[in-house]
Every structure is written in structure tokens, then in C-alpha cells.
């Protein structure tokens, strides 16, 4: 009755022999409880991380929060998201010029209790200025409640890639978070204006040239949905693109579907995009998604005077239902 696959067999002896020959040693990292060497840290920023760790420790020890979401050193340089539950774990936290990830997307995981019957957890989160706009977005859309999130705001001089400031950081004029509970660091004295220069080349193209530009970019897309999953504004329980009845789009991983996916997602983020650039950062194929989203940022900004997440005002074109619930048109 219970048919086992007849191919059941263990790894061959050859493999074990092979293993014995190796000089296998475990590498010690955060994940197995050992602390690895810290990532790349600017000298002037070392005192800031001590402030961050002290605040994190205080929040955990006092019971104000059960988890601190922050950055820790990654395995091969750079940083990665870290979730600290134990006050003694705060020494894992780092703050440097490679803290790219927008951590606010993980707040969606903290909207519900970890176990049935428990309370919604209180969390603290290390928040860069650009990422802080996502918190406003989530507040304006009723996704999180302000008292559940303690914002460790970080003044930011920009993130570096290969020795240079990243392109979005060069035009950024939001240098301290738009909201926070505590602010770490002094606002850097940087005066730039965002004149949407990055869009100039695309706007100079004819419609046909633009189409060809995007088709060539989307050709590389593999529909892995990393852009959608990393985006704090993409949190639908069941995305239109995941619906089994596929009302909007076929499931093919082919150019028409990829083109539709990206343009549809950009439309859904119009007025909501907080310009954190996560979608572009996580894209394994380097599709310049920020151009798509920033074009809509510009349009909404010029037409309606709204910039996603700068305040807790809802996007101009949402419907406020009678019971206060917010619904996108």
C-alpha cells in the first residue's frame, strides 16, 4: 500500500571517502552563534554603532521591544538584515556605508503575533531616511500601528558602492528620517536638489525608442519577483500575479508577461513608491526599475504635489471607506 520510490539509496561510499579527505572546518558566523569579524566600517561611524547597540540593548532589556531589526555583517562583505531578540546579541549590529537593505519590508512579518493568542510584537528598527518614508506609507495605509514600532532613526550620508556614493544617494535630500523615536548621528551637511536628471535620457526618447529600451531590459527578467518581495509597498496577501485564476496575466516567463508585470507593478506603486531603490538593488539582472518608478514619482509629484511617504497623508487617489479603512482605487 505504501509504495516507496525504488530509487531509495543513500549517498555512495565514494562520497564519504571524499569527505574524509577534506580538511573540513566549520566557518564561524553569526548564524551558528559565533561572532564574525565586523564588516567594513567608516572610522568616524564607530561611535555611532555603539550608540545604536546601547539603544537596542536598552529597548530589549526594558521589554519595550521584543526584537530589533538591524544590520549585521554578511558572509562575504557588506551587510544583511539581522533580527536581534537577546540583549547580548546587539553586538552583532553594524552601521556603515553598505547598509543597503530597506528593512521596513520586514515589518510586514511583524504585523501578526508570532503565535496564536499572543500580542502583536513591539519591534525596533534601524531606519535610514529613505526607508523611513516606507514607514509613513505603511502607517497611512493602516498596515502597522505607530506604537508597535520603535524607530531608531539614522542620519545618513549615503551608501557607497565600489568606492562611490550610489546614484540615488547623490540626488537624495532627505538626510534624516522623516519620523523617528531616536536619532543617531548628525545630519550631514549636504545640499542637493532632486531635479529628476536621471530621467532625462529616457524622456528624450521617442515612444518607440522607449519601448525598445524597456523590452531589452525586461528581456533579462526571470520573473523571480525579488523586486516585489523586497518592496515595502508590495504587501498584498495574494498578488494579482500569483492568483490561480490569472485574471490579468498569463504565467509564462516570457517577454509580454514580464513587460506587463513590471508596468503593472509600477502603476500600483504610483504615488506610493518611496524611492528606496530596493527593487533595483535586489534585481539579479540589473533592470533599472528605478527609472520606471521614478517617472511615476515625478508625474504624481507634479500633478498632485504628493511624494510617497513624506508624511502620513494617504496617496491622493485612494478611497477612504466609511470605517476608516483605506482602499486603493
Amino acid at each position: 500500500m505504501f509504495r516507496r520510490p525504488h530509487q531509495c539509496r543513500q549517498l555512495g561510499g565514494e562520497f564519504h571517502h571524499f569527505l574524509r579527505l577534506t580538511t573540513a572546518r566549520p566557518c564561524l558566523t553569526q548564524d551558528n552563534g559565533f561572532v564574525s569579524s565586523a564588516g567594513y566600517v567608516h572610522e568616524e561611524e564607530t561611535h555611532l554603532i555603539e550608540q545604536i547597540r546601547a539603544k537596542a540593548r536598552e529597548l530589549l532589556e526594558s521589554g519595550r521591544v521584543s526584537c530589533v531589526i538591524g544590520y549585521e555583517a554578511a558572509t562575504r562583505g557588506g551587510t544583511r538584515p539581522a533580527f536581534i531578540y537577546d540583549p547580548d546579541g546587539v553586538d552583532r549590529l553594524v552601521w556603515n556605508r553598505e547598509c543597503y537593505a530597506n528593512l521596513t519590508t520586514f515589518l510586514h512579518d511583524k504585523k501578526k503575533p508570532a503565535r496564536r493568542g499572543e500580542e502583536v510584537p513591539n519591534v525596533a528598527i534601524m531606519t535610514k531616511p529613505c526607508d523611513s518614508r516606507a514607514i509613513n506609507l505603511l502607517l497611512s495605509e493602516g498596515q502597522i500601528s505607530r506604537d508597535k514600532v520603535y524607530i531608531i532613526g539614522l542620519a545618513c550620508g549615503g551608501m557607497m558602492a565600489e568606492g562611490n556614493l550610489q546614484a540615488p544617494c547623490l540626488r537624495c535630500n532627505v538626510r534624516i528620517p522623516v519620523l523617528y523615536d531616536t536619532l543617531i548621528g548628525d545630519p550631514p551637511d549636504i545640499d542637493v536638489t532632486d531635479d529628476f536628471e536621471d530621467l532625462a535620457e529616457l524622456e528624450g526618447m521617442s515612444a518607440e525608442e522607449r519601448l525598445q529600451f524597456w523590452l531589452r531590459e525586461f528581456d533579462r527578467c526571470i520573473r523571480c519577483y525579488a523586486c516585489r518581495q523586497a518592496c515595502p509597498g508590495c504587501y498584498c496577501n495574494v498578488c494579482e500575479f500569483d492568483r490561480d485564476d490569472s485574471l490579468w496575466i498569463g504565467m509564462q516567463i516570457e517577454l509580454p508577461q514580464k513587460y506587463f508585470f513590471h508596468t503593472f507593478r509600477a502603476m500600483h506603486l504610483a504615488g506610493r513608491c518611496v524611492e528606496c531603490n530596493e527593487c533595483e538593488r535586489v534585481c539579479p539582472m540589473d533592470i533599472p526599475l528605478s527609472l520606471l518608478n521614478r517617472k511615476l514619482v515625478k508625474e504624481v509629484s507634479e500633478l498632485l504635489g504628493h511624494r510617497g511617504g513624506m508624511t502620513t497623508d494617504p496617496v491622493p487617489f485612494v478611497t477612504i471607506l466609511a470605517d476608516g479603512e483605506v482602499s486603493l482605487i
Binding site: 519590508t105 520586514f106 520573473r223 518581495q229 504565467m251
Partner: peptide
């Protein structure tokens, strides 16, 4: 799993991952 984004990237670039979906279009 806590930091996983639940995207499909690692499986799509993998030479051996083979899960599939089936549908009529």
C-alpha cells in the same frame, strides 16, 4: 528564514531546482 524575502531567485538560478506549475493559457 527570518531575513528571506520569499522570492524565487535562488531556485530559478539553480541548476537542479525543478518545481513547476502547470496551467492552461
Amino acid at each position: 528564514g527570518e531575513r528571506c524575502l520569499s522570492c524565487k531567485l535562488c531556485t530559478f538560478v539553480c541548476p537542479t531546482c525543478r518545481c513547476f506549475d502547470l496551467r492552461d493559457e
